[in-house]
Design a protein around this nucleic acid. Sequence first.
RNA 1: GGACACAUAGCUCAGUUGGUUAGAGCGUCGCAUUCACAUUGCGAAGGUCCCUGGUUCGAGUCCAGGUGUGUCCACCA
Length: 961
Amino acid sequence: MKSLPKIYQPQDYELSIYQKWEASGFFNPDKLPGKRKKTFSIVLPPPNVTGQLHLGHASMLSYQDIMIRYHRLKGDKTLWLPGMDHAAIATQNVVEKELKKSGLSRQALGRENFLERVNGFVASSRITIRNQLKKMGSSLDWSRERFTLDESSSVAVQTAFVKMHDDGLIYRGYRIVNWCPRCKSTLADDEVEYRETKAPFYYFKYGPVIIGTARPETKFSDKIIIVHPKDKRYRDLVNQEFEVEWINGKIRAKVMADEAADMAMGTGAMTITPAHSFADFDLAKKYNLEIKEIINADGRLTAVAGEFAGQKAAVVRKAIVDKLAQKGLVDHIDEDYVHNLSVCYRCGTPIEPRPSKQWFVDVNKKIPGRGKSLKRLAIEAVKKNKIKIIPDRFNKIYFQWLDNLRDWCVSRQIWYGHRIPVWYQKTNKKMGFYEKVIPQVYQGKTKTYRLRDHDFKVDDKVAFENSQSGEIFGEGEIIDVKTMTVGQIDLQDKAHGATYQTVEELIQAFKKHHPDKEVARQTPVWIYEYKFKENKEKIYVGIEQPQGEGWVQDEDTLDTWFSSGLWTFLTLGWPDKTRDIKDFHPTSVLETMYDILFFWVARMIIMSTYFMKEIPFKTVYLHAMVKDKQGRKMSKSLGNGIDPLEMIERFGADALRLSMIIGATPGTDMRLYEEKIAGYRNFVNKLWNISRYILTSVKEIKRVVEAPQPATLADGWILSELAKIIKSTGENIEGFKFSLAGEELYEFSWNKLADWYLEIAKLEGGKDEILLYILENLLKLWHPFCPFITEVLWESFESGELLMVQEWPELKIKNSKPVPSRAEGFEIRNFDLLRELITAVRNIRAENKIDARQIIDLTVKAKEQKLIEANKVLIEGLARVKLVEQTSGRPASLPWAELILDIKANPELEKKRAVEIKNLRRYLEIQTKKLSDASFIKKAPAEIVEQEREKLKEAQARLDK
RNA sequence: GGACACAUAGCUCAGUUGGUUAGAGCGUCGCAUUCACAUUGCGAAGGUCCCUGGUUCGAGUCCAGGUGUGUCCACCA
């Protein structure tokens, strides 16, 4: 045997142990030894490729590896499938930040070059993360590793999109969406966070009413005042129209009654801002109001804002208020108003709700042929107990979220991600129209004049585009082209649109749109006559680019959670029908932190019940968030984070794993701090030395698989304790009680085995078989929790086999003789009497400050004289006494025995006894009172009453002594 | 506004279905080093189980109300 050092140094072993595991191929379920029928599978929640392993990862890896290793030992065909998430917005942000340092932007690089950069970053990031996962000891099947953005994932994602579209579950709509002006992208509802912020709340005079708002910069074109129909204050105003002095001049405003107005809020009157508020957008649709964009994609004000156009919305607020103040329109300002500011969960930038055309997943529409909506499927999966969530209080939270779920916006205006598999057939030539003119086109305008030559020819097909929004609103063909000068334009020709009365007006209009050009009567113009046909874009939804000319793919990418929603089956080879899907889907357990219950868990349930027609996993185990010792969230800005890699370096992966598991309750946040990890480092070292003692004290190191027969009471005791712990550890792991499993094993190893049995073994001797049997099982039981040290110790058997694929002890126990409940003629539980006796003697020795080395005489008077006699060696050794027949000295008592120790009386002990007697008297008093209570005697179970009487007697007897 | 969780020793937490005098780890204090382990051993001190009321023979545990802390959801003119 290799000699084992006194202290376990994890750094000396962990790397090579992991390599041995990996080289064995046993992480791969196909290569596991033996016949394995039952399967057990977990897909690893894919870490984002953005960065470093943090404690959240360490925590989930610990839980999952425990389950995986346990099931592998139990003989299941066990798969733990690794992967990583491309984390679209997050990753793009990281790379953009890097670019910014060298003064670059993604726009400057262009889509292709930028994506190349991202891919470079991701490639190196993946290597880092892979190594970090290995450092935790994770027994992941690397041969099956997947990435949410690898080629086959793309096929799966596109297939999924197309299928959903074909079923009518994905549609394109013009709606208000959450817009992050910094990420320049939409966000899903649950990607928005709320922060309580103090901001001034303004009350403005708006015609006959006073309106309150926190966002004056969105109110340029508000024309409708809403009041509650039952609001007496405004009853007379309803349906009236007013000329209102407003930010940029007069506005015609109308008062309408709608129950959307909250009488108790502010002044009870509000104006509608259709384009920049979710609620107002719905109202605008209800009353068919114009939806005018005031804030653009950059977060700047549009032309609607007049003099304020082009400025950042948030910056210009003050100036707008000042202007209103000058006009005397500010009623008052509430400076201490607290409201929930919505911000981007990725970058913290305030969200601008704005209207745009996006792709949505319809969660309420019934799926063709199934009669149920996606929402319904997801609710039923949990409601009908097909999926069990631990802890179960999250059921309620899950249902609540689904009940409130609105259609899911899945398109993102970022570059990194799965490109949306939609193609538009664009006519090569585009004719742009100023927004104001578009209605005239619909009304029959058939000619347009242009200051530059668009190079259109007769019969050219053109697309009609809204120059402001870029939206295609129709198509047509050129039927005539004329060249002339501005002065020659026939203003009477209705086909032009008849907007201008004089040539001067026309020239002014030209100048407004083309401020860079000189325009005069002699300026040449081109007049194009066209045929207009209202037409939406031609759309093709499919994986391959369609045949024909002019097809262009949608610029947008998909929400990163769209692809992660497919994770449980995508990773197993979907859309192909694979053996892996048959074997491992639905997966057994989904283990993750509760904070992505909605983002991810719910979406996987939606996607799997829809695509696979089965649940993605049977159990959801939600672990806690790891916080610092003060209960604060760990964060970079607070600098209170614990780096798991540093902890592994200092204390070992095993210690870190234990510290995250023991003392943690699912769903309830846990606090972690270095001292705790150090505590488990101490335990790991204890385990090392327990093993070291056994391995160095036995004559021959060999495997003892069958339970040996106990020779002494102590043997019987430890063997029965071991049998108990073998049973309960399995039960606890399968019942997801990981903390309890760890605690019990800890208690067994340290407080029972090391503190008692090993000390007894030294005294009684001849216990090689039992010690080796205990070690064999101890290593197996601990292996799921601390795989490294147990595997290192297992090597001492020199069996040439790995511990990770041994047989779980419980399987062996089932087939062997039960551990006797008696040993050496005594009931096993009598061993507790011996422990009690020894502790009592130690106690008295310590109180009387007797030198630990000094052997003192002890007389024990009890009915159990035989027990004392048979365990003489043990008592004398552990209590450091000599058992004698008669002596005079200090008496002490146990409930079942009287002890006399040969020591001199001392004042401290006298004091002690006085207190003890006082307590005993008090107890007797209480107990007597209890037993004289008639209702107690009448109603309490007879055995309880009897027990209480016994206790009274015992206490009386003790007092008498 | 709605919902949920937590409150037990100085600190971090266990405490199953109500049932002996409420436990552990860390920390503190005392003693111990030829011993598998000082990353150790033996022992001790330390508690109004947040408050009030109720159910019960009996409540840390069940019920009602309250206080404090935290989280989620909704709203936000």
